[in-house]
Design a binder for these strands. Structure first.
Lengths: 349, 349
DNA sequence: CTGAAAGCGCTTACAG
DNA sequence: CTGAAAGCGCTTACAG
């Protein structure tokens, strides 16, 4: 069944008794192929186990059969989940998925977005995960001939799915504020040479808005550029503890940094919510176990949904299509790391 | 600097005043190119921002410029870390990385390994992560023309890096045994239609050997096919609790399943080490926080090392090369979820 | 050391 | 509805 040498379109043409170009058209379900021819071709191709050579197809002006997933990092829980869900979607649709991790490095970031033509040579479409783009980059991407979809990047001229990050952060922050905390720190995402993770920026906005509604200002010293890993959170919280009086509550932009924060507290003989209230965003599988208060979001769903949208773009490239934006639901989950600020609490009173 | 239309080898030839084929040779550092020609070509290519079209290159008999990473799943912590480390290596060496997750499904597994010729069309090499292969598959892979390297697959006819899984499991199990536990359950990896995750099989071997050394037999009811995620561990432990008297200790093949086991215990009002001792393998960043006893292993290192080995194979394809195997160090870390079995312990005495 | 020619396996106008 | 021909951008023998 699997021959040593792969069957070519030529073989299919011979076996089906039709010309190469009819075969080509039939295989791609193009118009102007009789039903009979279509059937013959399908049979021959099936029998030969024929699959078009992606290289030849690409070179002749067709498609590569690949899509790229571009993520700030591939190790964070959110990205690993999203990537796998998207990869599944792509594989089932017959696309290979090329993984590009920006590795949280500005240099890698600019290398990737600085040569979209090279990218276009290798893939037909791109799924962007929480990448912060400037206007020039958005324009270049739109003009690149690449199909594009994204996760966590609302306001962009292509299909996007995510959560309302500003709102989710607002909820988390408001939860803290309503419990009487007013001295808040935020563990934010890392900045990549002026380009942060997109969701991080939005979450910072939500944080600020909640504070503003309580007539509070964001204190720059309390906006810590952390990242998205457990280690990042641990480092950021350690820094916070070392450099100044502890804030009364901490909003971590994702659960993993919150975990790290919890670890750092323990290393210093402190704990949540006794010494400081801590809340995250995600509802990571460990959060329940650690009693972490958080704002839950569907994760794999976002990857699968966005991947699906991209597949549709790939299938109907000509058809002009108004970009859609989809916000999935989030929910505040109050657990044990947040509590009302008390007169007896250690600091600030 | 970035032209609308990509420069072709033709453009480089014209600019450098040389023929296309000299340019081709110069660019690939092939012999029989004068130093002067080489310099001219390099200059012209640089100026034009020229990069060979991977599709054309592949079609003409060259390489695709891509490698695939094949993993049982992409979401588990170990795999996410390994994949990113490998991807970094590949990117720096100029290879695109195609991610293929088997999604823990036998069907996906056989689709991938059943058509190696199709894979060869898309990538030059493959990095296998903990994939259990049978003799026929190993033979097919070796004959496929693909460069191969792997993580966690010792005994294979290509370069491999990993830990001594049998030994690591033996250490973890012996630790339990030496503390007086004799009624042990193991939370094993999932089986994919007869093919388990390779490391899982080896770890099961180590578990058995440790038991045998204590004149104990492996009780089939206590070998739970779990998987590698937190959810998997939670499910497996819940099953264990529901179906029979609790064993006195549990060896989880990885830390994440151990986390899940800890969660299940808590859900049933139980805890480690009071009601059952629990040990894992990995030393996940959360393990310290949860006090989980475990056997640590370097993770990103394995991915980077194996990827590097694959890059070397890709660079020197002709050169025949005896496969190497590299075991990285592991270390037993005793924390708080394991303790000596006491007369006062709830069960079995 | 260098170049002209053929060919890799497709797709795309263009005739029929 | 169908096919002959050109061409995509490279690499690979083969001459020189």
């Amino acid at each position: 069944m699997v021959s040593a040498q792969r069957a070519t379109i030529q073989d299919v043409a011979v076996l089906s008794g039709l010309s190469i170009c009819t075969v080509s058209r039939a295989l791609r379900n193009l118009p102007n192929v009789s039903e009979k021819a279509h059937r013959k071709v399908a049979e021959a191709a099936e029998k030969l186990g024929y699959k078009a050579s992606p290289a030849a197809s690409r070179l002749a002006g067709g498609n590569t059969g690949s899509v790229a997933i571009i993520a700030p990092t591939a190790t964070a829980w959110f990205f690993a989940q999203t990537v796998e869900a998207a990869e599944e979607m792509f594989a089932d649709a017959g696309h290979d998925t090329v993984l590009i991790s920006l590795r949280n490095k500005a240099e890698v970031r600019s290398r990737v977005f600085g040569d979209l033509a090279a990218l276009r040579q290798r893939v037909d479409g791109v799924l962007l995960l929480n990448v912060e783009l400037d206007a020039a980059e958005i324009g270049a991407l739109a003009a690149s001939g690449l199909a594009v979809a994204s996760v966590g990047m609302s306001g962009v001229p292509w299909d996007n799915v995510g959560i309302d990050d500003e709102q989710a952060a607002w909820e988390a922050t408001s939860h803290l504020l309503e419990m009487g905390h007013w001295d808040l720190a935020v563990l934010a995402g890392r900045d990549l040479g002026g380009h942060s993770v997109h969701t991080s920026r939005r979450r910072l906005d939500g944080f600020s808005r909640a504070l503003a509604e309580h007539d509070l200002e964001v204190h720059p010293d309390l906006v810590i550029s952390a990242g998205s890993s457990i280690e990042d959170g641990r480092r950021a919280m350690t820094e916070l503890i070392a450099n100044r009086a502890l804030p009364s509550a901490v909003f971590a932009e994702c659960d993993e940094t919150a975990f790290g924060a919890l670890m750092a507290l323990r290393e210093h003989g402190l704990s949540a919510p006794k010494d400081v209230s801590v809340i995250g965003i995600d509802d990571h599988p460990m959060s329940w176990f650690l009693g972490l208060s958080t704002v839950s979001q569907p994760v794999a769903d976002q990857g699968a949904f966005a991947a699906n949208l991209l597949c549709e773009r790939l299938q109907n490239p000509e058809q002009d299509h108004a970009p859609t934006n989809h916000f999935l639901d989030t929910k505040l989950i109050e657990r044990k790391t947040t509590r009302r600020k008390r007169r007896t609490d250690k600091n600030h009173d």
